[in-house]
Design a protein around this nucleic acid. Sequence first.
DNA 1: CCCGGCGATTTACGACGTAAACAGAGCCTT
DNA 2: AAGGCTCTGTTTACGTCGTAAATCGCCGGG
Lengths: 272, 272
Amino acid sequence: MTGPDTRPDTRPDEDADPDSPEGRGGAAVVIPAAPPGSGRTGLDRRRVLGAAIEFIDAEGLNALTMRRLGAYLGVEAMALYRYVPGREQLLDGVVESVIDELYGDPDVHLAASHGWQDYLQRLAHGVRRIALAHPEVFPLVATRPPAAPWVRPPLRSLRWVESFLDALIDSGFSEASAVAAYRAYSSFLLGHLLLEVSQKGVKISPEDQPEGVPGAVATTDLSEYPTVVRLEALLSLDESAAEFEEALENLLGRLEVVLREGRTPRRGDTRG
Amino acid sequence: MTGPDTRPDTRPDEDADPDSPEGRGGAAVVIPAAPPGSGRTGLDRRRVLGAAIEFIDAEGLNALTMRRLGAYLGVEAMALYRYVPGREQLLDGVVESVIDELYGDPDVHLAASHGWQDYLQRLAHGVRRIALAHPEVFPLVATRPPAAPWVRPPLRSLRWVESFLDALIDSGFSEASAVAAYRAYSSFLLGHLLLEVSQKGVKISPEDQPEGVPGAVATTDLSEYPTVVRLEALLSLDESAAEFEEALENLLGRLEVVLREGRTPRRGDTRG
DNA sequence: CCCGGCGATTTACGACGTAAACAGAGCCTT
DNA sequence: AAGGCTCTGTTTACGTCGTAAATCGCCGGG
């Protein structure tokens, strides 16, 4: 597993989504954790967290209970408490594990050895890959209360905050600009990715809609919203990859201006 | 209540945050719903939803159970089921109610009578006001699965989507650009506001930290993150209002370019 | 006067998170 | 070899949750 694959290119490609789980070889993939009923004994914290991630990916967050996760691992619920203090901390661990997948991604680097734009590009796509690989987990990454006010989702680890700030400061950003960039970058990632996974979820999830009375669809009356109806095709189009790319490059462009002009971004420059 | 107040100015001011609940007179405030133990009988769906919002604002989302909400209203839990099909739908109703506060906000208009920039500015600040007024509810607004893929948080109502698209199209945007703008705008709002409320939550929430052994603070070892330590003051600074304003104006600037050049935004224009 | 229906309560059930006591398997010491 | 310690998973038990179903009190129209 995680074997060498012949990926043609690292940079964003024109048509295929480079971050979608199908469109990519390895990287950003869960620890196998051994199929549920096999390896039997040998429970441990990593296996518990790995199983929780698999379980959420497969059944959804609401389906995850201590009892069911235990059953999934072939064990009683109480056994999990040896490795995790409780359900809340289990979820915290899940979030941490998922973000830790970034360390295993060969396309994301901790240091900005090819310039800060390259660093930010790779990091953004790495996070996006994770979000798309675990759409059911990502809302958890987004909303779990962070440990400190300055550890913001989706980069929920001090190590990445440190890496981010170092990368920008080493590239010539002032401390204040680096911090401002960090905040703008988190907002951008969070907004785009949360919407992207929730949109993905909705396309699949209205699971079983047993239509009691055929012919009478229960969807709300759309006649009051002619524009929405008219633009439905456009609205349903999924251009997430291109939009992500465009917004990311716009952000990088803004940051470049900040860097060149050596100041903290202030308002009133963009509009007439 | 909701009485006329002498608010000095509608436009964003320089130093005070115009969207914070304290810094503003009325608008974007919950339906009073009568204090818990008073008016007694006369339960109804609006009162139930209003009470749920008050309850979440006061006690947090996790504290909301059917039984406790019933008690808060001076009623048994099962009484609520007359007005709401179940807990999930109660939460859906809460989200809907909170977003509906936009209709009661005199500073937000459904039509773009003063230009699309004014429309988007007012709408953005209206949503921000709601988010700040209900920080515990907003994550719900952000993550509840939307009804259709094209009804995105935080503008979770067809009426607002319709209004948004009409406003932009009437102002000269092409249909495709209006839809693209809608998506960029939702991402922007969601990312910024979700981070802002979660940051706000963290500043308050580490509620009771009973320090067992004095002198030995349990916080994680920061010695490996010198940059984070050095920039802690900067990182803890709360510049949310200014950052929101700057990002919003940047977005408006981008949209203005799209409008002027009459095309759907494509990539490769901002950088080098 | 009764009575039908509406709004709230009572009762009940299964699932949940988790505290606490328990059981068994290996290993270490004597 | 025998005893016991530790480490891991199970059993049992409790209180709380969401909610289905039956029940009750009240009130206005015959």
